[in-house]
Design a protein around this nucleic acid. Structure first.
Lengths: 369, 369
DNA sequence: GTGATTCTGGAAAGCGCTTTCCAAGCCGCT
DNA sequence: AGCGGCTTGGAAAGCGCTTTCCAGAATCAC
């Protein structure tokens, strides 16, 4: 293995110096100066005369030396120059989820500003091999919407670097940025109740790491590893129970996948469980949009026959007039970045709660029963 | 600064051992075994008895040791476990561009599979400080759609690690994945000509690092640093000149920003330059969609009065029925990942050209002049 | 019981770099 | 001419880890 590596390195650099690449030391030897001097040429140009610096740079170019090795530099300075990001799913999946992309946009905004790299850490959900986390060379971590019992999350929290989590339950080991999912959803429940809806159905995103698709009992609701979903369901329950609606009569259907198709199929299942519902609550806009499509396919009018609500405030849903809760996803990413990278912020707050906005759309209407 | 770092580390680990964290060596000392043994406990469990390994792990937990330091490990093994990605723009901008997101999806798919991290390297376009590139601890690089004369690109190519570029001109220093932009656009030109269009306008994305908005002369077209745009224009020219249309009479308008709004304003400008055009060619779908909006706002019917074409095949454009060239952006990302990470592929090809598909939509129609 | 074989764990040699002193050399000033 | 202060560049001490030997202990076959 080592041998192969060397061979490759040799192949790539063309010029063989030592192991296949010039080092700061070999450059120094070549020039008859000390390593210090070469290092200074790169890192502290004011520490040597311009002439000498120029000589060093010339020699570097001649020998194909592209500057101090980043890893060795990091070891010495104890700075990696990057932060790691851990996501719910395989990284590639995140790029299909508009909310995750918006979060990334916000986070990278801060990384750009600080000149810090963002390392997307691969975390395969069907493996417990957390080495990708323990071996990530980073100065800090951000975790976005990970389930509580995730082994990658645990490995991350064990690392002795600052950490920020978002859309997850608070923990002493990390700073937090989030929204009040429960209150926002309670608000949504009140909206539906004020419209006269008492017989509703619910569709939600995955509640745990296990792949479950179908009806959710109360035990699963309360034990859900996904904090966000658990809180949204709880907020809904708060509202409906306060209005005297028995929660255990309300069908709640879970889907592991988060997609239009999953929303459609979940809506179908809810309708089979209780064809008499007058409103359907989805815990995300994507699911809501899927549900609306399915209802129309079944010749139910939205909102005249059935009201539908979403959550998140993604552009497509707002454009489609879905009644939803708009949350500042990009801002969440930014705040996470700030909490990690901006010393001023870092000293002030360890917890940032962002506001949400209720958006009354055209997918809900009064029920006259 | 160093002092502060130490202080912080101390704060976080709670328990001060040496510099604020246990090391493999301190653990070994504590246990009265050698460093080798502790290292083996983590990296080669088969090299020691389960009992001893257990003892090591217990002690590690007790001392808050989260495993071997990733940076030191990387230095020793000469592997960073990550590849770097360099993008046209600030990283945050990429997340607003559907094509870049699709590319990222494909690339991360391969990274996930290989268990390799993806480091998003910050490259501020208005700075020439390439240290973010020279200091990135990575085993390889991918560059996506960078202009030829970009200093970050140059710094990347100077590094002695394997590199793959996409949507850029070929270079000896890197492997390549791309499409034949010129041929695809030539195809589009032929389509318009077969419909009878001879008087057209063109809007294109940025052609260079300098912020230019407005009419593009031939010199700028041919000297464009953005290879992709240059080739698309060249393909268009090929087609129209072959049909006997003088290229220098065709207005070409450039926009630095890539957005719906930019497409709209560029379309407006073209119309002012030549109100008699019967077709408008955009070099991207985003610009095309902006243009269509603007034309409708000006009470031009598309396609009856003016035909419009795009390029890329992004979902929104396909849904809207834009005549375009669909290119496999996600596949480009995957191929870039494979070229870098899959030794088998790596040995076979150094250059991958992917096919494009012409998509006849409803935004083009025959011109009866 | 003896020699051969396998296991287990240790010693040592760096990986390539930064940075803190420190020692000359040099200049201008009196 | 002599002194103080400034500039320039070098020596050395690690940063924390992996891995290749290698030696001693334990096991086994006969």
């Amino acid at each position: 293995m080592l041998r192969r590596l060397r061979y490759r390195a040799g192949m790539h650099s063309g010029r063989l110096v030592g192991r296949g690449g010039a080092t700061l030391a070999s450059l120094a030897r070549e020039l008859g100066v000390s390593r210090t001097t070469v290092s200074n040429a790169y890192n502290r140009p004011d520490q040597l005369s311009p002439a000498l610096r120029e000589r060093v740079m010339k020699a570097a170019e001649r020998l194909g030396y592209a500057g101090p090795d980043p890893v060795a530099r990091s070891l010495r300075t104890r700075k990696a120059g990057a932060i790691g990001l851990l996501l719910t799913e395989q990284v590639s999946y995140a790029f299909r989820d508009p909310a995750a992309v918006a979060f990334l946009e916000g986070l990278t905004l801060e990384c750009d500003r600080a000149g810090i790299g963002l390392l997307l850490v691969p975390a395969s959900p069907d493996s417990d091999d957390v080495r990708s986390v323990t071996r990530a060379a980073v100065d800090g971590f951000v975790a976005y919407s990970m389930p509580e019992d995730d082994p990658f999350l645990a490995a991350m929290l064990a690392r002795p670097v600052p950490t920020v989590i978002s859309d997850q339950p608070a923990t002493d080991a990390a700073d937090l940025v989030g929204i009040d999912d429960r209150a926002a959803m309670r608000n949504m429940a009140d909206h539906l109740i004020s419209l006269g809806h008492k017989r509703i159905g619910v569709i939600c995103m995955r509640l745990g790491r296990d792949q479950h698709n179908g009806v959710v009992d109360e035990r699963r609701q309360e034990g859900a590893g996904y904090h966000v979903q658990r809180n949204r369901l709880a907020g809904l329950r708060d509202g409906f129970e306060a209005a005297g609606v028995a929660w255990d009569r309300i069908p709640v259907v879970e889907r592991f996948d988060h997609s239009i198709a999953a929303g459609a199929s979940a809506a179908g299942q809810v309708l089979e469980l209780d064809p008499g519902i007058t409103a359907l609550v989805a815990t995300s806009d994507v699911l809501a949009m899927g549900a609306i499509g399915e209802l129309r396919r079944r010749h139910k009018r939205v909102p005249q026959d059935i009201s539908v609500t979403g959550f998140d405030g993604v552009k497509a849903a707002l454009d489609a007039g879905v009644t939803t809760v708009s949350q500042p996803v990009t801002a969440k990413g930014r705040e996470a970045g700030r909490l990690l990278l901006d010393p001023a912020v870092r000293h002030r707050a360890r917890q940032v709660m962002l506001p949400t906005t209720f958006v009354a759309g055209t997918s809900t209407a009064p029920h006259h029963g």
